[in-house]
């Protein structure tokens, strides 16, 4: 049931992208997202798709994994596509009853769906090639300047690390609780919204109790090892910026330039 979740799952192999510093991957992803929002003609989208496919190939993560991660937003994509298809005003090409499809509608719908798909796949390259810990490390170091305005960057990063670390643990726990309750005759495949919601109670109560218990234990274990926040804390694996990160950054800048030069323009 929860095994289809790819978003935020690390795919453990070795590739040039896996070896990059988490910070460069984060900045790279931001550049990619900006580029996807910036381009507005089909040449731009072609460039973005080509770039995405290249990145996936370099990352050596099977494309199957990326597509699997899309399952969760398929509904959103369909909605966005349909709404744009039918609601955008313009030159009518087909109409029936109160529904009408316009040329502009088709255009925006295609672009919208493409944009969503590219965003999700683009950002999942980062999460698939970076361990959650190095990702939060990277974020912590990128957002360190915010300390000046009294934002507890380290604490937020630590919370994120713990939250991410606990996803698989709680998933496994959920699986066990589900089985224990199924052994007591709960039917999780029951039809109907109320029935379904009701069958969640025997699942969620033990899960919450165990989550609180684990949180308590973890807090105790951290205190026993003298954890006292980020001040003066060193890292076991400090982040290092290498020449390959610089190359990656330059490539991303080049890509962004391409998008700006060719990807922007009025509808042809």
């Amino acid at each position: 049931m929860f095994k289809d979740m790819t978003l935020g799952q690390y795919y453990p192999i070795d590739s040039p992208i896996h070896r990059l510093d988490a910070r460069s991957k984060f900045v790279g992803t931001v550049i990619y997202i900006v580029s996807v929002f910036m381009v507005n003609n089909y040449i731009g989208y072609l460039i973005a798709i080509a770039a995405l496919l290249t990145f996936i190939a370099i990352s050596r993560v099977p494309i199957k994994f990326m597509v699997k991660g899309m399952k969760s937003i398929v509904v959103l994509m369909i909605f966005a596509g349909l709404f744009n298809l039918f609601l955008v005003q313009g030159e009518v090409v087909w109409s029936w009853w109160i529904l009408s499809i316009t040329k502009e509608g088709i255009d925006t719908a295609i672009k919208m769906v493409l944009r969503l798909a590219l965003l999700i796949m683009g950002s999942s390259i980062m999460t698939l090639t970076t361990t959650p810990t190095s990702l939060t490390d990277g974020l912590e170091s990128l957002f360190k300047p915010l300390n000046v305005i009294k934002i507890p960057v380290h604490e937020i990063a630590m919370m994120m690390t713990i939250a991410l670390r606990f996803i698989p643990i709680l998933t496994e726990e959920m699986d066990k609780i589900m089985k224990a309750q199924m052994a007591r005759g709960v039917d999780f495949e029951a039809k109907g919204l109320i029935k379904k919601a009701k069958s969640m109670i025997p699942l969620l109560v033990p899960l919450f109790i165990s989550a609180f218990r684990r949180a308590n234990d973890l807090a105790m274990a951290m205190e026993a090892r003298c954890y006292r926040g980020g001040k003066g804390r060193t890292k076991m694996k400090p982040l290092k910026y290498h020449w390959n990160d610089a190359v990656a950054f330059l490539i991303m800048c080049g890509y962004l330039a391409l998008c700006i030069i060719f990807g922007r323009g009025v509808l042809e």
């Binding site: 726990e173 224990a180 052994a183 007591r184 218990r213």
Partner: peptide, 28 residues
């Protein structure tokens, strides 16, 4: 089948959830 072949898992914490013991036993 699940009522005929009863399975008690290792951790009671995985199955107890009701507000009192009696209600919890009633659940099955």
């Amino acid at each position: 089948l699940r009522s005929k072949v009863g399975l008690v898992f290792q951790y009671p914490e995985h199955q107890l959830f009701e507000e009192n013991v009696f209600k919890d036993v009633c659940f099955g």
